[in-house]
Design a protein around this nucleic acid. Sequence first.
RNA 1: GCGAGGAUGGCGGAAUUGGUAGACGCGCCAGAUUUAGGAUCUGGUGUCCUCAGGGCGUGGGGGUUCGAGUCCCCCUCCUCGUACCA
Length: 876
Amino acid sequence: MAYPFTEIEKKWQRYWAENKTFKTPDTFDPDQKKFYVLDMFPYPSGSGLHVGHPEGYTATDIIARYKRFKGYNVLHPMGWDAFGLPAEQYAIETGTHPRVTTEKNINRFRQQLQAIGFSYDWDREVNTTDPAYYKWTQWIFVQLYKKGLAYLADVPVNWCPELGTVLANEEIIDGKSERGGHPVYRRPMRQWMLRITEYAERLLNDLDELDWPESTKEMQRNWIGKSEGAEVDFKVEGHDQLIRVFTTRPDTLFGATYMVLAPEHPLVHEITTDEQRPAVESYIREASRKSDLERTDLAKEKSGVFTGSYALNPVNNKKIPVWIADYVLSSYGTGAIMAVPAQDERDYAFAEKFDLPIIRTVQPPEGFEGKAYTGDGPAINSSFLNGLGVKEAKEKMIVWLEEQGSGQRKVNYKLRDWLFSRQRYWGEPFPVLHDGKGHTSVVDEAELPVPLPEMEDFKPRPVKENETEPQPPLSRAPESWKYYEKDGVVYRREFNTMPQWAGSCWYYLRYIDPHNDEKLIDPEKEKYWMNVDLYVGGAEHSVLHLLYARFWHKVLYDLKVVSTKEPFKKLVHQGMILGETEYTVYKKKDGRYVSFDYVSTLSPEELENQGIQAERIDESLIVKSGDFFVLAEDKNIRVDARSFKMSKSRGNVINPDDIIRQYGADALRMYEMFMGPLEAMKPWSMSGVEGISRFLNRLWRLFIDEDTDTLSSKIRKEIRADAGQLRVLHQTIKKITEDIENLRFNTAISAMMIFVNEANKWPELPLDVMKTFLILVNPFAPHISEEIWQRLNLEDILARQHWPQYNPQLLEVDEVEWVIQINGKIREKIKASKKIPRETMEQMARQQGRIPSLLAGKTIRKIIVVPGKLVNIVAN
RNA sequence: GCGAGGAUGGCGGAAUUGGUAGACGCGCCAGAUUUAGGAUCUGGUGUCCUCAGGGCGUGGGGGUUCGAGUCCCCCUCCUCGUACCA
């Protein structure tokens, strides 16, 4: 029979809530050490919590409880990232207002989180859709506007007709919307932009000092994409305008044999000759009609059209043709390039296709057989650069260009300004007023927040045709909201709303001072609590959320609202939890099995044609043969074994509520941590949960007599622990402490299991040892440990105890097992004191057991003694 | 293509600075208890052989070392990210 976890867990959850056990006081002693441990707050979706959420949340909860035991003032809050597309779409699907569904979802999420026993300070809960919260999101926008970091611009945007909104570059994956996978097209639109590019250099440099996963830092570096080179101006024959290009290889300028403009480049129309105009215009039309996906992924083959004009290469005044091609992106650099086919693979492919000249300006090494050569080497065919290496040639060319006035040194970033408006209802309204004459201003800070108007019909209007201007839902808001009169002037409010990232850019600050009406955050509190000491969340936010939040943080730093340059000192990503491993066997229509090694070579169509179908098969019918799994009944039939991402369509989603009902919250927490390293991707296993559940029951029975439901008579208050018991306890303290510090929760749990296995062998259990052990268990399994603590009739509650410290002297074991090796192979073992000197050890080893006979007839060359571990005799 | 990470029993995973590979859990096998159990307890469990012993074993190949999962070189495969960024 299982211990009464349901009853116990409810009891303690109620106790913690009623007594506000984990409340972080508003006032604090500035000298007390603090620890701010933060989770990425969830998006309260309609489907509730899944098992991925409690993974990171349990990890941070363990840290929070551990740090409290260690005497830290701990901030461990939770809130809701509740604006955004999915909430709105869910609301549309169910025909209810997003405010209603959002509130319902939040209540469900909160209740689910509380059922897991997380020690959040619920008095600090924040909600991005609360006017008292988004007042400050709008306030930050006002500051951005005043600093010139927010501006309206006609920009080519990523327009998603299905969603009826524009999307940021980061919200597009493989040319499709991240949400829903709808096609995305480029079209110009007047939009709010945030000048994140102004912070590019700082966002790049400050990464170095962060304790973040290297992969995440690297992704941000790539996203920012700094490259150094030069801008060069090319005259266009017969025109006044110059074509400016960015290049990282100014040293190859003598090899520039043509130029390419992006189809959207503003000079295209002007320089196109009448003769070429029809071809050019049809190419531009084609390009604009292509989605990003078609333009990149499918366009392996280069395409382009000659404009009819020629540019003059500034180094030698040679005439070179100007083309347009969609392999040049309008959004990067200047939207135009000088093409150097001999030293650039893309240009080479283009030149080859359109038969354009190729001039080598870097001497490739002997035997080089490739086409474009991008490596280092002496400059050739390059007049005053000849003989120089790439690096020197670059330098010399930049100096020359600057002297001639036809170019200059330039640092370029891939990072573009942040497209900050969305044509949606469920988002923060912009605190912006339009005067109707093309002039904008921001709302007075005293009048914030600008509320989101109450609307019946908040649905977006999908716009299929690129030519029609989209109408955001707020354009249909009540007149009283839409217009605003001040000093006799009637202003129109902004109809776009902010993207979902806005609210999550700064929420970690609001937790510190969640109810402040006067300020975003009190400076004293900010100074005490920042930085976030540990931030745990999914790797999917590596660039989006984490880059935007860093940007806003730096702006707030410049405004002196915050005192730290970076918000999150240490970052950890929890790994994804996959569904239970599935074994799949393949069958033909006639029921005959087909081996997976054959099936895996087939395309889906071929599978269909041959009538081969997949069938899930139970693990017990499978054996391993070599490197593969095969059918036990026919070892020639290979079976596919893998774990899939949890998804509704696959039907492999685990609901934490079910686990809690069957095994309890402590088992859920423990299992999530026991599965493997926090950062690793790992498959769910129901029998693994059962294993943990058995452990918790064993732990319970160690203390509680099941028959009588009273304290076990083995627990003895008056007896003193013997050396062996103390050693086991202190080894456990050491192991668990070090493992928690290093976020190695799986091995910490294994240490608890070892302790319980040991303690089960003891005829009597010294109370002192057992209560210390309960403290060690508490961060992981807070309910069961607290309940046992109470039944032991101990002082106060467990949550207010102190973390034990291990005594190194108690860890010492005198007698250890030594290994005796001959030529590195283990031949004998000896139990002996650790303190025996090397020489004695060596003597003992030579006489031990079979060693003398094994050494017979051999010459000892060397003997290696590692004290406390081994003796290795080298002989031949 | 590029960047990052990884490969250890039937499975999830352990293994401080190179020093007893496989901790802990699952699964499996045997036994005990039980009216019964998918409950509990005890023991076993990398693999092979001629089994009181020995050989082989951390994706593959080479190297350094008395000694390599761990260090060096080459290769294969997997995962994640990214992709015409001039």
